[in-house]
Design a protein around this nucleic acid. Structure first.
Length: 665
DNA sequence: CTCTCCCTT
């Protein structure tokens, strides 16, 4: 099978030689726009900078204003971007990161009181806005990667706009300048948001090598088969160069890897081909191969990746991209149900994927769909704010003094039904009163960097004397992917056996406690290296548990800090010890809105909306006969079936005791 | 009989 009749136009551009640092900076596309940029930033108008990859916008533009009177923040959607950009800019200015130029991300503050330019995550700046909604510390805020339309960036756009207007109204205050940096496609959205008369647009060309697009002539019926055929075609007909393949998820990646390593195919590929896998849940040591130099004798690397390779990580030396045009998308449906399904990507996303082939030289992108199909794709991806539950966002906004979220200036306003659903949840938790005003309890919840339901679970622990245990449970829940589950090979059984040793018959929350406590014991007895071995042997993610550890420390300190110092003044060491019933009752009290009970079929479970759901196969409660009579769960999501995850057994009669308003009688 | 990715003083 050969899907692509056209082959590469054999033309090679010479890549740039390495310049000195000063030359390097002056040769960046953005340098030619220096004067224009500075004039725009000093003007009273908001600046919209559009530039694609390789222009140097994120490192250079803020740095042009270093040594001025300005105090600046540059926001990034991802932690790694914030930290590495700060390090690079500090280096380019012969400085040490954390002095004049620094970064601030969760768990890691690398700034001083006199830091002039701080790279931050958008979430971090949002937290700062909860303390000071006018963001008085800053005179310029750069919102980078705004075209990604992440939830946090979108909210921040409204928050900085609000701060700017409010500071304009008072002459005594320093004005706030806003610079939005985005890829070209979304610029109209931002111009509409701020108003055409209020903005200056500056367009900077990127510096990317050309990428030639190839489409299939007929629609590929099976994208797995099409992917396999295309990889073989590239390997046999195209010259040297690494291949990056975009697939929807772990399952497809591992299946394809098995096919590629299979006898027939590996003979076709011949020797010297290295298959690398790349998805977020893959252990770091298994991810390394994708980033490392090719080993001796290896002629071509084929990387099978999820959309992690779209924006989150940069892979060196990619010359060929194979795009299935598919990704997994999580979204809330009109019914309020969460779904996670394979969907087509947008044109903007397809362009981003193709661009990964043009970083070192001219590239080729094999799209496993017709050009016609491409034209029919949505131009832009759906902004995250339209796809997720908004309870936490509404809580944050109320914490900033936005009483009525419908009056908030959203870049794209969410549906009223979505706002209503979030408001109902906050009301049920007691975070807002009948007038939809934040209650004292709501103010407490807003202090916790957690989903309000998990915050509620944690705060309830004081009543059930299990705060130490709940701190651990919500920390592990926030970390995700604690158990590593390979999907192919003989390790499946090994992993399952290892996981079984942590399993509690009471359900997933107690199981999380078991694995965290075992890991922590190991950490105090052994060196880091042994600790890593312990994780590998038990198929648990050291990375996730490490994250859970940091989250737990942070939550613990917020809970411990007295109320007058913006904390919650709780006794964080209170523990239920061997008394599991207190812990399970607390789970019931915290998750009282997420209850399911056994139906007559005895294998399936009926959730509160009288809808039949199944226990997710990753749950320790999966496959129990008979199914538990009554459970609470942390997550409800539809894939091929509707599943509940984070399942914990409770007694139905507890419900009246723990949530009498909702379970009268 | 199986979840894409990211983030929070």
């Amino acid at each position: 099978m050969k899907l692509f009749s056209e082959t590469a136009k054999k033309k090679r551009h010479r890549s740039d030689s390495i310049d000195s640092l000063a030359n390097f900076r002056q040769n960046l596309p953005v340098y030619a726009y220096r004067t224009e940029l500075l004039r725009a930033i000093r003007s009273p108008k908001i600046v919209l900078v559009t530039a694609s990859t390789g222009s140097g916008k994120s490192t250079q533009i803020p740095a042009y204003l270093i040594d001025s009177e300005h105090v600046m923040a540059v926001t990034q959607p991802r932690r790694v971007a914030a930290t590495t950009l700060a390090q690079r800019v500090a280096h380019e200015h012969q400085g040490i990161v954390g002095h004049q130029i620094g970064y601030r991300v969760r768990f890691d503050d690398c700034t001083r009181s006199d830091t002039q330019l701080t790279y931050v995550t958008d979430g971090m700046l949002l937290r700062e806005a909860m303390v000071d909604p006018l963001l008085r510390k800053y005179s310029i805020i750069f919102l980078d990667e705004a075209h990604e339309r992440s939830l946090q960036t979108d909210i921040l756009l409204g928050v900085v706009q609000r701060a700017r207007k409010s500071r304009q109204q008072s002459y005594s205050r320093r004005p706030l300048q806003i610079v939005v940096m985005s890829a070209t496609l979304q610029v109209q959205t931002f111009e509409d948001f701020f108003g055409k008369e209020n903005v200056v647009r500056i367009e900077i060309p990127g510096r990317q090598f050309p990428v030639q697009m190839l489409y299939t002539s007929v629609p590929a019926e099976d994208y797995m088969e099409a992917t396999l055929a295309t990889i073989l075609q590239i390997h046999t007909h195209e010259e040297a160069g690494d291949v990056l393949v975009f697939l929807p998820g772990q399952e497809e990646i591992e299946d394809l890897a098995t096919l590629l390593r299979g006898n027939t195919v590996s003979q076709l590929l011949a020797n010297g081909v290295l298959i690398c896998l790349l998805y977020a849940a893959l252990p770091p040591e298994a991810q390394l191969a994708a980033f490392a130099e090719k080993p001796e004798g290896c002629r071509r690397k084929i990387i099978l990746a999820t959309n992690i390779a779209e924006t989150s990580v940069t892979l060196p030396a990619i010359r060929y991209v194979v795009d299935t045009g598919k990704h997994k998308l999580r979204q809330i449906l009109a019914t309020g149900m969460d779904s996670l399904t394979v969907e087509s990507v947008s044109q903007a996303q397809a362009a981003q994927r193709a661009g990964r082939a043009g970083r070192i030289g001219p590239g080729l992108c094999f799209r496993l769909y017709t050009e016609d199909a491409f034209e029919r794709l949505d131009p832009d991806s759906l902004p995250e704010i339209l796809r997720v539950g908004l309870a936490q966002v509404i809580l944050q906004l109320k914490g900033m003094g936005v009483q009525d979220p419908t009056t908030f200036d959203f870049v794209t306003p969410p549906d009223t039904s979505s706002l209503v659903r979030a408001a109902k949840l906050l009301y049920a938790l007691g975070a807002v009163n009948d007038a939809m005003e934040l209650t004292d309890y709501g103010k407490k919840l807003a202090k916790l960097p957690l989903d309000p339901v998990f915050g509620h679970l944690l705060l309830k622990s004081a009543e059930y004397s299990c705060t130490s245990e709940m701190l651990t449970a919500v920390a592990v829940l926030s970390a995700e992917n604690v158990f590593y589950r390979p999907t192919t090979g003989e390790v499946i059984a090994k992993a399952a056996a290892a996981h079984r040793r942590f399993a509690s018959h009471e359900g997933d929350l107690p199981t999380f406690l078991n694995v965290y406590q075992a890991w922590e014991r190991e950490a105090s007895y052994h060196s880091r290296v042994l600790h890593g071995e312990w994780c590998q042997r038990n198929f648990v993610s050291g990375r996730s548990l490490g994250r859970a550890y940091h989250v737990r420390q942070q939550l613990r300190s917020t809970c411990l800090r007295p109320a007058e110092k913006n904390g919650l003044g709780m006794d964080v060491n209170v523990t239920c010890g061997k008394d599991r019933e207190s812990f399970l009752k607390c789970a019931a009290a915290g998750l009282f809105l997420q209850v399911a009970s056994r139906t007559k079929a005895e294998t399936e479970i009926d959730s509160r909306g009288n809808e039949t759901v199944s226990i997710h196969p990753t749950s320790t409660m999966f496959g129990r006969h008979p199914a538990p009579a009554c459970v609470v769960f942390t997550e409800l999501v539809t894939t091929k079936k509707t599943y509940i995850r984070g399942v914990t057994q409770i007694r139905e009669e507890w419900l009246h005791e723990v949530a009498p308003v909702f379970y009268p009688k």
